[in-house]
Nucleic acid binder design. Structure first.
Length: 407
RNA sequence: GCCGGGGUGGGGUAGUGGUAUCCUAUGGGACUGUGGAUCCUUCGACCCGGGUUCAAUUCCCGGUCCCGGCCCCA
């Protein structure tokens, strides 16, 4: 028996229905915010991913040579590919460019709860904006997505990596990275070996700032941007989910300004379901300097959180099941199915002779909401019996009425 | 890459040094208009490889996959 590779999954129909439902919510919301969907290749030049993170990440991605000797990689994330697309072919698009995407990504990681080798990300990017309004819109869209799925227990932590960088801008580039890494991993003790006591103290004071917008008061003008972001978020009505947390440091070095993370505590160790912020990546890829903001939602993790919270919805079927009774010819059933399908009505019928009771059983097991019985008596008059499977109620109606009801 | 716990039909399980229990699901039938029930029946499993043994699903070693944790998390 051949198994799916480690860290990958199969999605049977009920699972896909659930996923498509969630996708639909996120797609509609992105469109409500004026974003357009894009798609990029599943594999890219390896260099696209080593550019910003160094060759070290090759250990963590699926990298390979193709038959022409090219160094390629399955995409480990979608921000860089989308930015590559922007730089390649959307340079003269009207600004700002607002894009969203949903796609599979691949990482060579140890699988565990909520972590797979093939996983799915939903993300958005607003390119060439960089304003508080853009940052706030991105956070608001992330929140709306998560909330509209039905998840209630989550929190948004908003920080600003630019303020942190300002404190250490005088240091060597390598040291800056080490400091940010230490802060990201919450290894605060190691700071003293990298920077002066004075700087370490100011860093520690800064990352202690947590709470509502009033904690920004102590930062003065540096925090004007974040104050405006928070103001916008309350206009969206989302202030209750958001807290300022200056200790939020995203792992990537291309983040430049506002950064945020969303956590679902119910998930335990792998609780982060969304991350994003303001970044400058286009320049690295050979484009102009395009201040951008984006986020990526861990699609699988959000769905996992929903399930753990008992909020996974039943996705109802809309298929009508056709059955014959008496001596109605099977060709007439096929013809009726074709007519209904041409009217946009989802229809299924037995592909082999099946007794009425077996047919009912099948319809029930498939959770079809309605069965149409083409009984000999009513079919003589061009009518059918419509059975509501949840109530068991039946009525006799003409094919025209049936089409009118469901199309 | 590291540590720990696991792996018995499609799903869920019982049990054992002499190849295996039950439930459920699936296929067929009883039953040719409503029988989504009931009953009968078929199919179907000891993760893989090596070792010990007369004999391994059981014991040992390695691998693999799953679960949890560490590292990492662009």
């Amino acid at each position: 028996m051949i198994q799916a590779p480690r860290g990958t999954r199969n999605f049977p129909p009920d699972e896909m229905a659930y996923r498509r439902w969630a996708e639909g919510i996120m797609r509609r919301n992105a469109e409500l915010f004026g974003y357009g969907e894009v798609s990029t290749p599943a594999f890219e030049s390896l260099e696209l991913f080593t550019l910003k993170s160094g060759p070290g990440i090759i250990d963590e991605i699926y990298a390979f040579k193709d038959k022409g000797g090219r160094d390629l990689a399955l995409r480990p994330e979608l921000t860089a590919p989308v930015m590559r697309m922007v730089v390649n072919s959307m340079r003269s698009a009207p600004k700002p460019i607002k894009l969203f995407y949903l796609g599979n990504c691949f990482r060579y990681d140890r699988p565990q709860s909520g972590r797979y080798r093939e996983f799915f990300q939903f993300g958005v990017e607003v390119i060439s904006a960089g304003t508080p309004a853009a940052d706030a819109e991105i956070i608001a869209l992330a929140i709306k997505n998560i909330r509209d799925l039905g998840l209630e227990d989550f929190r948004v932590k908003i920080g600003h990596i630019g303020v942190l960088r300002g404190l250490i801008s005088g240091l060597e580039k390598g040291v800056q990275t080490s400091v940010l890494q230490a802060l990201d991993r919450e290894e605060y003790d190691s700071l003293s070996s990298m920077v002066s006591d004075d700087v370490a103290g100011r860093l520690l004071n800064l990352i202690r700032l947590k709470g509502d917008a009033s904690v920004l008061d102590s930062l003065g003008d540096e925090a004007a941007h974040l104050r405006k972001v928070m103001e916008h978020l309350s206009l969206y009505g989302y202030e209750k989910y958001c807290t300022i947390d200056m200790s939020v440091v995203r792992g990537l070095d291309y983040y430049t300004g506002m950064v945020f993370e969303i956590e679902a505590p119910i998930l335990g160790a792998e609780k982060q379901i969304c991350g994003g912020g303001a970044y400058s990546l286009a320049k690295l890829l050979g484009g102009g300097d395009l201040p951008s903001t984006g986020f990526a939602i861990g699609f699988d993790r959000v769905l996992l959180a929903l399930e753990k919270a008992g909020k996974r919805p039943e996705i109802p079927s809309r298929v009508i099941y056709l059955l014959r009774a008496g001596n109605v010819p099977s060709n007439e059933m096929v013809k009726l199915a074709a007519d209904l399908r041409n009217s946009g009505i989802a229809v299924d019928f037995p592909l082999a002779d099946k007794s009425l009771s077996k047919g009912m059983k099948y319809a029930s097991a498939m959770r079809y909401p309605h069965v149409v019985i083409m009984g000999e008596d009513e079919w003589k008059d061009g009518k059918i019996t419509l059975r509501d499977m949840s109530t068991g109620k039946q009525e006799t109606l003409s094919v025209e009425d049936l089409i009118a009801r469901f199309s």
